[in-house]
Computed example of a mutant assay.
Amino acid sequence: MKNFAIIVFAALLLNACTQKKDYDASGNFEADEVIVSAQQSGILNSYDVKEGDQLKKGDKVGQIDVKVIELQKQQTEARIAALNEKTISPSDQVELVRRQLEVQKSQLAQQLREKNRTENLVKADAATRKQLDDINSSIDQLKKQIAVTKQQLKLNTYNTNTQNRSILSERAQMEKLVAQLQEQINKGQIINPITGTVLTNYALQGEMQVVGKPLYKIANIATLSLKAYVSGRQLPQIKLGQQVTVRIDDGKGGYKEYPGTITWISAKSEFTPKSIQTKDERPNLVYAIKVNVKNDGILKIGMYGEVILSK
């Protein structure tokens, strides 16, 4: 009887050892997790994030205090407004010089007419030569004044434009500073980057935050990836976009199956992870693959799953 029991046990053990697995690869479910960090330093004035929350991309979930930066921006904007008042309109100053030039030209024209008249009088011995010389001297003086006024007109235009360019250049720098300050103000808002579920929360309202400090971890678990491993012998049987079957334990002694799609195949082999079993009884080198599976709410990150390449 004892020998019979030993034989039965040995037969069962041999059968278990020689029985082939009915799946082709196995692994664990994972998701692309994003850790959202503070992009500004300050007190966390408002914060509405809880583990398990469903957040949409673009949702504002918190605000870091940026009052000091806002004051700096207002101060810079006030300086820009003051610079605008310092700019000079070229037309105002140039017009004054231009009017002076017109007066001088009018005086010159009058003196030229007087010269002609005096020359005729000198010929008729009705005027002295000295009177003509005085008129010629006055004409020469007016021509010099007109030349100086014309030069002054050019210089005034140039100086005004140069002064305005200097002011406008300074204003451009300040406007860039305002844009930088606005960007820092914007970074005080905590904007959720992806649609997904909050996995872990690290922060509380009222805490002091610094740039780079993690606030929460979020992942889109509507679709999970099963990272499994196949042997080199199985590699020719798979390709990107291939439809496969993924299954998990249903908790009742059976399996729950899902359709899956192979979305990634590793380009290099690696040693078999200790926690992974393969169809070829743990070969030394395996290739990782990822199978995307639509989540019905039952699949969880880290859960074990199996891949069946063909049924």
Rank of each mutant, 00 (worst) to 15 (best):
S46M: 00
A222S: 15
L12H: 08
I185W: 04
R129N: 14
L155G: 09
V211P: 01
A81F: 00
I185R: 04
L44C: 03
E257T: 15
K279A: 10
E85F: 00
D249Q: 03
L12G: 11
T245M: 07
G297T: 11
T128F: 02
I194Q: 02
K268A: 13
V122L: 10
I190N: 05
L309R: 03
E102D: 13
A38V: 01
V244Q: 05
R247Q: 12
R129E: 14
N28Q: 11
S169Q: 13
D140Y: 14
K290E: 15
Q145L: 12
Q111E: 12
Q107N: 12
A109E: 12
K144T: 13
G302L: 06
L153Q: 10
L235W: 02
I308E: 05
A38N: 01
I301D: 00
Q163R: 12
A31S: 11
E85H: 02
K279W: 04
K213V: 03
S310I: 08
Y258R: 09
C17R: 06
L101R: 09
V291R: 03
A219S: 11
F4T: 07
V61A: 10
A172R: 09
A228Y: 09
I298M: 13
A267Y: 03
Q63V: 12
G188M: 08
Q242N: 08
K60G: 00
K67W: 07
K60H: 00
D65Q: 06
G188Q: 07
K57T: 11
E119P: 01
T162F: 04
N3E: 14
Y304P: 01
T272K: 05
Q180F: 06
I191G: 03
Y287C: 07
L235F: 04
E95P: 00
A288M: 10
V61T: 12
I308S: 06
E70Q: 15
E207P: 03
N284R: 13
K274P: 05
T87H: 01
G27P: 04
M303I: 05
S269Q: 08
Q180C: 00
V66Q: 13
K311W: 04
A81Q: 02
E281A: 10
I221R: 07
K105T: 06
D125Q: 13
I64K: 03
S310L: 08
D24G: 10
L96T: 15
R233T: 15
D296E: 09
I146R: 02
A5N: 13
V148Y: 11
V293T: 05
K294W: 00
L14A: 14
V307A: 03
I308W: 02
I64S: 06
I194V: 14
